[in-house]
Design a protein around this nucleic acid. Structure first.
Lengths: 102, 102
DNA sequence: AATGATTATGTCAGCTTGGACATAACACAA
DNA sequence: TTGTGTTATGTCCAAGCTGACATAATCATT
């Protein structure tokens, strides 16, 4: 977002922009959450396409429903490793992971 | 690899194939190490292109030379999170990460 | 070969993440 | 509304990861 527009909206009492602006992240950190968000969204998409509940997927992953929920919410306690593993277990190929990130 | 060929080579005393064959990994696990290896290689490439030593990079990342060495070796104690963070700190964009994985 | 620079490997205390559980919140049909 | 299925959130502690250090191994230059 261009700065003038941001100031205008900020003046109206809004905090504008993505997670980077709000949490005041450095560029690399912002890119990191961007990647994580992309993967979490890909996971939810793949799961719902297969018409699985979070609980069912958790069973396949030998994990728990609550953790799957956190994966899809890109919770801070969830690593990219876990997201990648989950995607691969759902049949995604490395190429699909790459596609999701792009 | 096709099984006949593998048997032939195995008979000659060789252990043939990638990490998956050797460590007897499931398909998702094999794909996981594949992704990790791709990222570790991308890291070394990016670092050497910038003519940085492992120690210098470690300084920028507030880590240690030994850990950077492990990152580039795709050591089991290194997470994909750490690799991604390192790449992003070196200026890689999410798109570059995707490219490396593909 | 000897020196200096860089990279590799082993270990460990401390921090982070994972699975599990409980429970709340939501969606939607009866 | 009440019930049923699904998803979200908070907490615990065990398992896994991280930075740091020591030291070994490589490599390049002389």
């Amino acid at each position: 977002m261009k700065e003038p527009k941001r100031q205008k909206l900020a003046a109206a009492g809004w905090t504008v922009g993505g997670a980077a602006d709000f949490l005041d992240l450095s560029a690399p950190e912002a890119a990191f959450v961007e990647v994580k968000l992309a993967l979490s969204q890909a996971l939810r998409l793949l799961r719902t396409r297969k018409r699985l509940t979070q609980g069912e997927l958790a069973g396949q992953l030998r994990s728990s429903q609550s953790r799957v929920a956190k994966m899809e919410a890109a919770d801070t306690t969830v690593s990219i490793d876990l997201l990648v593993r989950a995607l691969l277990h759902l049949g995604a190929k490395p190429r699909d992971i790459a596609k999701a990130i792009t």
